[in-house]
Amino acid sequence: MQKRTFTDQMGRLISFSYPPQRIISLVPSQTELLFDLGLDTEIIGITKFCIHPREKFKRSTKIGGTKMLDLRKIRELMPDLIIGNKEENDRAQIEELMKEFPVWMSDIQVLPEAIDMIRQIGELTGRLEKAAVIADDVNEQFLKLEKIHKPYRTAYFIWKDPYMLAGKQTFIDDILSRGGFENAISEDRYPEISADQLKNLNPECIFLSSEPYPFKDEHVKEIKSICQDARVSIVDGEMFSWYGSRLLLSPAYLRSLR
């Protein structure tokens, strides 16, 4: 096996024996991508949130949560490549792992960066051809998504107590825009909002995401009592925030929401 050097999406150089034989994935959407690339035997550890594909989740070794990794377990597994994400993983833990292992990090806020990540992960795992097919298909599906003359003003909830919404400078915001939904929130990242502030925003649509907070039907009624004229619904959060091969399903889902 030869040693090769790659640049991750944070501009860091990492070197490891190529192709990697012992991979740990720290992010659900990227874990699903790795399995879809046919790396079943190479994946030796995933997080407890890496639920897709279901049958492979059940039989894979778990190494904690995305922001609470079990560093001892990771060390015991002796990976030759760890794949994480700037936003989803804890910086201090990632920096600790970087001292001991090659750690490739993604940094994604818009769809083109997600498509680039798919290609790059294909290259660094020796599955470039399969990854290129997925990346091209994702790009084509989004290009076919029809434009809407007047996008729906939409508030996208990710949390309750306090209410937190997806704002600008997020991947969710980019997917909303591509789906024909204008983000009603002008602040960056994930601002908190009060019931009065939500009422003053007067959005046409309110999406309650299925993750990370598990919104239910009773929450639809709660929000509807605040914004009586808005269309309030629970949406599949994976279709807005998973930036791996699950993006193949997102355009059709966005079309159905319209």
Rank of each mutant, 00 (worst) to 15 (best):
R127T: 12
D136A: 11
G126I: 01
G126K: 00
Y156D: 09
D137A: 11
A135L: 07
K147F: 09
E140N: 11
Q141A: 15
K130G: 08
E146W: 07
I134T: 09
W159Y: 09
T154N: 04
D137R: 13
F142Y: 11
L143E: 15
K130I: 08
D137E: 15
T154Q: 09
D137H: 12
T154M: 04
H149V: 10
F142T: 13
K147S: 14
I158H: 06
K147I: 12
F157H: 09
A135W: 00
L145M: 09
D161P: 01
I158G: 02
I158T: 01
F157Q: 00
P151Y: 04
T154W: 11
H149M: 10
D136F: 01
I148C: 00
I148V: 15
V138D: 09
Y156M: 04
A135P: 09
G126A: 05
G126F: 02
L128Y: 04
P151F: 02
E146P: 08
D136V: 01
L128Q: 09
P151D: 02
L143C: 11
W159N: 04
K147V: 05
A131L: 00
Y163C: 04
E129Y: 02
Y152R: 12
E123Y: 00
L124Y: 00
D136C: 03
K144Q: 15
I158F: 10
N139P: 02
R127Y: 02
E123S: 11
K144M: 11
A135F: 11
I134S: 07
E140S: 11
L143M: 12
F142S: 10
I148R: 03
E129T: 07
T154P: 04
E129S: 10
K144L: 15
E129L: 10
E129A: 09
D161H: 14
R127P: 10
E129W: 01
K144F: 03
T125C: 07
Y152K: 11
R127M: 14
V138H: 11
L145S: 08
E123F: 00
Q141I: 03
I158M: 05
E146S: 15
K130D: 14
I134Q: 06
H149K: 09
G126L: 06
P151S: 05
N139L: 11
E146V: 14
V138R: 03
Y156H: 10
D161L: 08
F157D: 05
R153Q: 13
E129C: 01
Y156I: 08
D161K: 12
L124T: 04
A155S: 14
K160L: 11
W159M: 05
I158P: 02
Y156V: 09
N139W: 12
R153G: 11
E123T: 03
K147R: 12
T125N: 02
